[in-house]
Amino acid sequence: MQPLLLTGYQRTLTRAGIPSPLQAAYTAAAAYMARRERALTLTVRHLAPHELQPHLLAVLAFGCVSDDTADHNPGNTTTVNAWADHTIKALDGSPTTHPVLRALVHTLLVRKTPDHWARIFITRTRDETHFDGFDTDDEFAAYVRSYVHPFLMMSVAVQYPGAADDRQAEEWLPLAEALQRIDFLSDLADDLSQGRLTIPRQDLTDHHLTPCDLAFPTPSPRQVAEVLRLMCRRARTAHEASLACADAAAPTYRRMALAAWDLQGRRLARCETAGLQLLRRAVPVAKTDALRVAVSDAIRQWNSH
């Protein structure tokens, strides 16, 4: 059954010029996003220009499928390498029946977007099966640049015919940092349950903690709460700095950039409120936050006229 968010999506595909033989592939990519990232998909559907919506959802779906393949197969290099090899062959021009890859390849072609961001990202995805956390926050910053930034740039580059140049790409790095800090905070409980430590080990050592202290209920609530507040402060600083990324966006993409920034800020606020509960359960993007973002956008549009 097609998600409610995709009501009328075939009209969107037609308006965007997606050929009929590829519309099923684009619909499958959008449906994947609607299931996995409902609030983000709602934001794209409400705010992104019709001609960009299928392309944005296609590249986002590719990134999410790749990320899920790595996250759901820890240590299973065979499965992850098979997906990476399939992706590279599709980018090289080999036929593929995978709907997300069919949509991705067509999007890169018609948007005149070089595929180097997708190649960098999928190559780095191979390493995700051996993710072992970070010793320091500097290692986290290197992770953002090598893995998260290419993921973000796949969708950002769609807005620039001919792709974003190096200067434009660098301008989006603060948003990549903010998104990942917030994502690690909100998914902390799930990551810990899977044996993934996303808090730098040095931060734990500085507070006289070990990874075992992060089990819920923690035996060291005061020290753990201090570490979580540190993570939240870093995320808040990064989020505030990333607002400038909206100014780097193409005019047709600026509303979407502002909305994405607003949405993640609201998710971060929920993490800040959760405190030690971050060890117990994930903090997803709330549907109510997506609706509030839409209202805020409508107010901005009203005030600008």
Rank of each mutant, 00 (worst) to 15 (best):
G133N: 07
R201W: 00
R126K: 15
A164R: 01
W117T: 07
L179E: 09
R124T: 11
G162P: 08
D191T: 08
W117S: 05
Q180N: 12
D166R: 09
D190T: 14
D166P: 02
A141G: 15
A176P: 04
E128I: 06
V156G: 00
D191A: 14
I122V: 14
R181E: 05
T125Y: 00
D132K: 10
H149S: 13
V144L: 01
H116M: 01
D165R: 12
E171V: 06
L173C: 07
P200Q: 10
F140V: 09
A118I: 00
D187Q: 12
M153D: 04
L175D: 02
L185Y: 03
Q180V: 05
E171N: 06
D166Q: 09
M153C: 10
A142I: 08
S146V: 09
P114R: 04
L152W: 04
V144T: 06
W117G: 00
V148P: 01
L152V: 14
Y143P: 07
M154C: 07
A163Y: 02
T136N: 03
E128F: 09
D137K: 09
P161F: 02
A176H: 04
D132W: 07
D137T: 12
D187G: 13
F134E: 01
S186W: 05
R145H: 11
A189V: 09
D135Y: 14
V156D: 00
L179N: 10
I199F: 05
R167A: 11
Y160F: 15
D165Q: 11
G133S: 04
A141W: 08
A189I: 08
E139Q: 14
L188N: 01
V158S: 01
P161V: 06
E170F: 06
T136S: 11
F134G: 03
A157L: 01
E139K: 08
D127S: 13
F131N: 11
E177M: 11
